[in-house]
């Protein structure tokens, strides 16, 4: 008994150490930014992790400029619209891939893989030229379109993996129980597909939300500049002022929606996945 419990204790301790290392590694940079955003201007460079003098001035500053609010609006709008479209299109494509045999199925999967692997940097210049001549440059659609293009392969892959796991015999069972095809989809298939759709939506949303490359190259004004791009344009109120505090505050602010998003949907994803399979 003693031996067993001590090895068990040892195993637990080992895992605890590993967990702590991972957490520290992941969280220290984030906490550092939080700390910077709370420091007063004259203590930025004091190298203390915990601020000596606290202030919320940086947050007040960013929300009092039109620049940041406008960028936030752009970010939310563009990411939400791109996510919606990519998930809807991805769902349809993934459904077809998981359920149907049609000519060109392998070509479709191959091409979407190709797009996912394409280096985005090499597309920036041609896209810039094209969008300028199509007058899409510096507009919401000008960012939404490339985001959909690059998010779709991601969406199709994730969703078709999820869809393959759904036992389609359930659809037949629902039909035998008296459901119309629409009822079978709404009451049986959709609830089972939902966790996959939410997971995909999160991944796609994060991809759009975090993008810097397209945001910086395909925008030129606050009309469509998203937060990651706007951050690089932050300046102090005078050119001698260091914008580090405001940039940190803005970085914290744009991280919050992602955290909320994941926390909110994580519950549903886990609930969906553990609700019990048909066999086994």
């Amino acid at each position: 008994m003693a031996v067993i419990s001590s090895t068990r204790g040892g195993k637990k301790a080992r895992w605890a150490v590993i967990d702590v290392i991972v957490l520290v590694y992941a969280l220290v940079p984030v906490l550092w930014i939080v700390s910077l955003s709370l420091k007063t201007k004259d203590t930025f460079t004091d190298k203390h992790f915990i601020p000596r003098s606290w202030t919320l001035q940086n947050y007040v500053d960013i929300f009092s400029t039109n620049q940041f609010l406008r960028a936030l609006l752009n970010s939310v709008g563009i990411a939400v619209i791109a996510t919606l479209i990519a998930v809807v299109l991805g769902t349809m494509a993934a459904y077809a891939i998981a359920r149907l045999d049609f000519p060109g199925k392998r070509a479709l999967v191959g091409v979407s893989l190709l797009i996912a692997m394409f280096p985005q940097v090499s597309l920036v210049t041609p896209l810039f030229q094209m969008e300028r001549s199509l007058s899409l440059f510096d507009t919401w659609p000008g960012l939404i379109l490339p985001y959909i293009t690059f998010a779709l392969p991601l969406a199709i892959y994730t969703l078709s993996a999820f869809f393959r796991e759904i036992p389609w015999e359930l659809e037949k069972a629902a039909k035998m129980d008296g459901a119309t095809p629409a009822q079978a989809f709404r009451r049986v298939i959709a609830p089972l597909a939902a966790p996959g759709v939410f997971t995909t939506a999160i991944l796609v949303f994060i991809f759009c939300w975090n993008d810097f490359l397209f945001a910086i190259s395909l925008t030129s004004t606050t009309a469509s500049r998203t937060v990651p791009a706007a951050l690089s344009f932050f300046q102090g109120s005078s050119q001698f002022e260091d914008p580090t505090g405001t940039i940190s505050a803005a970085a914290v602010v744009i991280t919050v929606p992602i955290i909320l998003f994941v926390l909110f949907f994580q519950r549903r994803i886990v609930a969906g996945l553990t609700s019990g399979a048909v066999k086994g």
Binding site: E169, K172, K175, M176, P191, S275, V278
Partner: peptide, 20 residues
């Protein structure tokens, strides 16, 4: 006729119970 209009019940080998 569609399955739902035949008023027949079926038991599947995999049981096909709705997991949710």
């Amino acid at each position: 006729r569609a399955p739902k209009d035949r008023d027949i019940a079926m038991v599947f080998q995999s049981y096909a119970l709705y997991p949710h």
